[in-house]
Design a protein around this nucleic acid. Structure first.
Length: 227
DNA sequence: GGCCAGGACACCA
DNA sequence: TGGTGTCATGGC
């Protein structure tokens, strides 16, 4: 039984010893990373990757070309990622945003102050908290911890936070206790996803989870954290 | 053949 | 503010 703060530190150490440096995000450049963040919404990465490869084959990984292609045509190309009509609409909305606000220049976009940019991203159709934070962290090198379904599941199954905890609560928890370091933010999220994929998809697999034995004290379960 | 995946949004009470 | 339905392909 450990405190939430110790759990965060110990879990990171155990997972890094287990998986090593995972070199995330599996995509190149801010646009490809942003597209990947949208395409992987509620979708396994392998399927999102197929859609990205299809875009690459057609030389569509550019703001210019994506702004020219029709939503219908785009949706056909990204079909393997699932929810293709929605995702085509979301990609178009994001591209319009980058063009209108920053003239299509990502370095200009990421030059903007973090909180201000995050608010703007959240206002774009189809970009919620996780997608925005993935773009900010992996695309822009900004210190925002990414919380996903695996993160939530792992915290809940190891008694750290309640299943019903909100995105902001979980993010605040990590951002309070995890060292403010880009490599660690990047790597920790990657480690949690890897753990989730391998051990936390269905109950039986959980018996082999490297985090077993690392339980948070019941009386110290995180309800809220002040940043 | 059924279940689920690295979410977000609309709609309803 | 919280709960529920919807979007869709592909792997196991």
């Amino acid at each position: 039984m450990v405190s939430p703060r110790s759990w965060i530190t110990d879990a990171y150490e155990i997972l890094e010893n287990t998986f090593g440096n995972l070199h995330w995000w599996p995509a190149e450049g801010p646009l490809e990373i942003s597209l990947g963040a949208i395409l992987t919404q509620n979708t396994v990465w392998a399927n999102a990757e197929k859609a990205i490869c299809a875009l690459k084959r057609r030389n569509l990984i550019s703001v210019e070309s994506l702004s020219k292609i029709s939503e219908e045509e785009l949706s056909e190309i990204i079909k393997p990622a699932g929810f293709f009509r929605q995702k085509a609409k979301r990609i178009k909305a994001f591209i319009d945003f980058v063009r209108e606000e920053y003239g299509g220049d990502f370095s200009l976009m990421f030059n903007e102050e973090g909180e201000q940019l995050r608010k703007k991203l959240l206002a774009v159709y189809g970009i919620g908290a996780e997608t925005a934070d993935s773009i900010l962290l992996y695309g822009g090198g900004k210190l925002y911890f990414v919380v996903d379904a695996y993160t939530r599941r792992i915290l809940s199954r190891h008694g750290v936070m309640d299943e019903s905890a909100s995105y902001d609560e979980i993010q605040t928890f990590f951002m309070t206790y995890v060292p403010k370091d880009l490599y660690v933010y990047n790597q920790y999220h990657a480690l949690l996803v890897e753990t989730g994929k391998r051990f936390c998809r269905s109950a039986p697999r959980c018996s082999a989870c490297p985090l077993n034995g690392l339980w948070c004290r019941d009386d110290q379960k995180v309800i809220s954290v002040d940043r």
